[in-house]
Design a binder for these strands. Structure first.
Lengths: 304, 304
DNA sequence: AACAATTACGCACCACGTAAGGATA
DNA sequence: TATCCTTACGTGGTGCGTAATTGTT
């Protein structure tokens, strides 16, 4: 029996739903269903009461849950104890992240990790997607946290897992003509003064992909200027100098304060998937391997 | 990570050897090696010191071992607690065994099982292999413990796992002309007055297979009589009335006491494999599924 | 030479995701 | 209808056993 099945059971118990747990752990619903069926098969007992409004534990399920927490706790203690025996080379962990991830989309789990494995020397480098990827290629970093699209056309094959996702927004100043709208049409997008991130940015790659999928090229747009940082772009948009685009997470505060107005492209919900990437999972040191496990683990994908 | 990997680690630690643990758990040596490599990979640490005289735990290995015992103990407690919640139909377990297995080759684990799952109503039926197999076919028993050869030519497909093995011996009275020999030649075997088990016996099937593989048929032998029980055969041989054959386990005591003289067929070591058999593993109730797990588990194959 | 672990390789099975299906409010 | 879990199915990865290899006593 896999320990991950117990983790899954705990997560399902927490959120009382197969489908929610599947989302949180980046699995499909049938995969979760199948795992729990095989667990029920293993113990020979039904563990969940299924209903159309979610699931709840049976009596036997509660027994398993009780022990699962203990067992997983013990296993966590095991890893902590091994941690104290690690050699120096296994204690270093250098992570590269794109601006969006590094500045806004870091899951809390990265800090949980520091707490859980205090002996690890962790370093976080924030740059744009292309730069991070080239650092990975040259073994200057162990792991990269990037937008899915950063890998497009890179040719090489990397090993990757999804850690979280978000939505791409068009951002505008909170005034006419934008303030009354919640969507932006293609023709409005073509005319509006647009501020974009520099080449090599992951967010730019996503935006470009969308534009192309809508039958346009970038030079049909009214590109005003190019900026190397999200903060610079936000300030410029807030000052009313143009519109831009970014991850929803990057402008949570500004939207709440009303200093930036969010728009979605008409008829097009744009999803951003964030990945954790390495060259070869087999070659990773202990600290890095643990980091991956803790990032994709249960309940670890909430943002800070 | 699979719990079975922790069980394997504990077993290896106990016997200080990959190959011995492999035998005990009915796995190949490379399978064991591979599992432990993947465990080392999982924790990112070497767990064993390999030497040509076996293996020993590293410091990290001892940590894992310490926790593994706790975790496995906890998991055993889990199953025990679920046990108390079982419905009636899951508490019945009827097992059929061939004479040899039922009377002599029962692993201790069958009694451990009773202790571990005291709520199970276990019933053991001993008969010859064909009878047991037909009871399995008619769902009169849940599981069958038989010689591997019992399945030969049955046509149907069963699900089976090996639980133990033994050696087939020719048994003779402790007097001339046998007392000075440790092997018996083919021509001696043809002439000697032979007592055999009844048709349908698993041991007879094995013996027949061997005879055929040596280029003979049963009717070329000097078959004196046919008997339905091992005890009857043993008494007859002890009384000097002829020779016979059986599993080494069945005559351990008599060999030690010197009342029966064991022989092996010249140039032919005959291995007997004992299996645990069911119609369809998916259809088994909890008690039966647990029984299988406990029978093939670590350190459970020693005889009583 | 003998024994123990590893590597190589072919095969079978298992777990996943996608897509379609059924039950319930 | 919307939501949630289940079933069906094709695919890729993983674990197994057999056989050949390495290394140590």
């Amino acid at each position: 029996m896999h320990l991950s099945q117990l983790e899954l059971l705990c997560e399902i118990t927490r959120v009382k739903s197969f489908s929610k747990a599947a989302k949180l752990l980046h699995l499909s619903q049938p995969a979760v269903s199948g795992q729990m069926h095989s667990l029920e098969d293993f113990y020979g007992v039904q563990l969940f009461e299924r209903s159309s409004s979610g699931v709840s534990l049976t009596k036997a399920g509660e027994v398993v849950h009780k022990y699962a927490k203990e067992i997983l706790g013990l296993h966590e203690a095991l890893e902590k104890e091994i941690d104290t025996l690690l050699e120096e080379k296994n204690k270093n962990l250098v992570i590269g992240a794109s601006s969006t991830v590094g500045n806004y989309a870091l899951p809390c789990s990265i800090w949980d990790y520091k707490e859980r494995y205090p002996h690890v020397n962790m370093k976080l480098i924030v740059s744009n997607a292309d730069t991070v990827l080239s650092m990975l290629r040259q073994d200057e970093i162990h792991l990269a946290l990037l937008e899915e699209e950063a890998l497009l056309g890179s040719g090489e094959h990397y090993s990757s897992q999804q850690i979280s996702n978000d939505e791409l927004l068009v951002i505008a100043p909170p005034k006419k003509p934008w303030i009354d709208k919640s969507t932006i049409t293609l023709s409005e997008l073509k005319k509006a003064p647009l501020i974009i991130r520099e080449k090599g940015s992951g967010i730019l790659k996503i935006f470009e992909k969308i534009i192309n999928s809508l039958g346009l090229t970038m030079d049909e747009l009214n590109i005003m200027t190019e900026m190397g940082s999200i903060d610079a772009i936000k300030s410029t948009v807030e000052a009313g100098m143009g519109i831009s685009f970014c991850s929803r997470l990057a402008v949570r505060k500004e939207i709440r304060n009303g200093t930036i107005h969010p728009l979605v492209i008409e008829g097009k919900q744009v999803k951003i998937n964030y990945l954790i990437i390495c060259k070869d999972e087999k070659e990773l040191n202990t600290a890095a391997r643990r980091f991956i496990r803790s990032m994709v683990g249960p309940g670890k994908t909430a943002f800070c």
